[in-house]
């Protein structure tokens, strides 16, 4: 599984990292550190990644199975 963060949408709410701190990290300004990139998710973190993506108020994180 991979996730993509849409940099047009990330608004630094920080809920992804609150919900799934092992998957998502924030940069110094509070934006998702992976904005604009596609990232592989290790199998044991897939459920957490889904929860973190679902928590995003801007729909900025898309999961790709």
């Amino acid at each position: 599984m991979k996730y993509v963060v849409d940099s047009a949408l990330c608004a630094a709410h920080g809920l992804c990292a609150d919900t799934a701190p092992d998957v998502f990290t924030l940069d110094d300004d509070g934006f998702n550190a992976a904005a604009g990139r596609t990232v592989d998710v290790p199998e044991h973190l897939e459920a957490a990644a889904r929860e973190g993506a679902a928590a995003c108020p801007e729909s900025a994180i898309q999961i790709q199975d």
């Binding site: 849409d6 940099s7 047009a8 990330c10 300004d29 934006f31 898309q62 790709q64």
Partner: peptide, 19 residues
């Protein structure tokens, strides 16, 4: 639809980011 759509969004996203 994705994945073609996702590639365009990734390409254009930085010009529309809050920053």
């Amino acid at each position: 639809d994705p994945p073609y759509q996702t590639r365009w969004r990734a390409k254009l996203g930085e010009y529309f980011s809050p920053r």
